[in-house]
Design a protein around this nucleic acid. Sequence first.
DNA 1: TATTGTTATACTCTATAACTATA
DNA 2: TATAGTTATAGAGTATAACAATA
Lengths: 154, 154
Amino acid sequence: MDKDRVMECATTIMDTFHLIMRTVGPESQKRSSLSLSFQQFRTMKILERHEGASLSFVAEHMGATPSAMSKVVDSLVEQGYIYRRTSESDRRKLILAVTDPGKQAMDAIHAQVLSRLAERLTGLSPCECEMVYLVMDLLRSKMVTAQSEITHQL
Amino acid sequence: MDKDRVMECATTIMDTFHLIMRTVGPESQKRSSLSLSFQQFRTMKILERHEGASLSFVAEHMGATPSAMSKVVDSLVEQGYIYRRTSESDRRKLILAVTDPGKQAMDAIHAQVLSRLAERLTGLSPCECEMVYLVMDLLRSKMVTAQSEITHQL
DNA sequence: TATTGTTATACTCTATAACTATA
DNA sequence: TATAGTTATAGAGTATAACAATA
C-alpha cells in the first residue's frame, strides 16, 4: 500500500482514539466520585490481570520507567485502590495488588465507560456496527503480531 | 440497534484501544527525540490541513481547552515551527500557520514515524485501509457530536 | 454582553540522575 | 557488582478560574 496512505491511516487512528478517550474515558467522569486518570486506570487493569506484580513488571507492561510508575502507584495506594508491600523472598521487590475497594471502583468505572461509549454508538446501523467490528478485529490482529514481535525481541 | 450489540461494540473498541496504546503508545513518546511531542505533532498536522486557523479552531479539533492549546502553541512558536499573528478583520482572533522550518521538521518526522507506526499496518489492502478511514470518521463524528453537546450544556 | 486568547495555579504523567536497600 | 525501588528535579500537557482586549 502507498506509504503516505499508511501514514495518514496511522494518524487518523491515533486522533480518533484520542478523541474517544477524551470523550468517554475514565478521566471524562470528572464530576463522579469514581475518577481515575487514564494511566491510573491502565495500571489497575494490569494489576487485575497480574495480581502481586512487582513495580518493574508493571512499568515494563506500561512502557514507562520505574520512576514514573512509582508515582502512579503512590497515588493509587493513597486512594486505597491498591496495596503495596515488600516481598519476603526478595526484600527489594514490591508486591502490588488491587484492594476490594479498588475492584469495586474498577467495576463501576468500567461500566460507566462502556455505557457512555454505548450511548454515543446508538444510531449506528447494523451494517455500520459490523464494519466497526471488522476494523477493530483488523487493527487488533495487526497490533497483536506487532506486540508478540516486540515481546520476542526482549 | 440492539443494546447488547452496542455494548459489545463498545467493549471491542475499548479493548482495541488498549491494545493499540500498549503497542504504539510508548513508541509515540520517542517522537520527542525529534523535538516534537505527540500533541505538538497533532497540532502541526491540523495546521498543515487548515492554514491560518485560529486557536479556538485548533483547540476544538484537538478536543482540548483554549488554555491548554495556548501553551502548546507557545512551545511551537518558540521552536519556530509555526507563526502566530493577530487577524486584521477580527483583532481578537489569532492566525496560526506552519513555517518553512516547521514544514521541513514535519517532513523529517513523517519519514521517521513511517517506519515505526506504519510497519504495524503493512499488509492492509487499499480496500481495508479505506474501511479503516470510514470507521474512524464514523466514530469521530459520534464523538464530536457528543463533544459539542457537552459544550452546549456548559 | 459575548467572544478570543492569555495567565495563574494546580495537578498528572514523564524521564534522567542520584540515592538507599537488598541480593 | 547488579537489581528494585524511591526521590529530586525538570518539563510537557491538562483544566479551572480570573483576566484583558475586542466585537
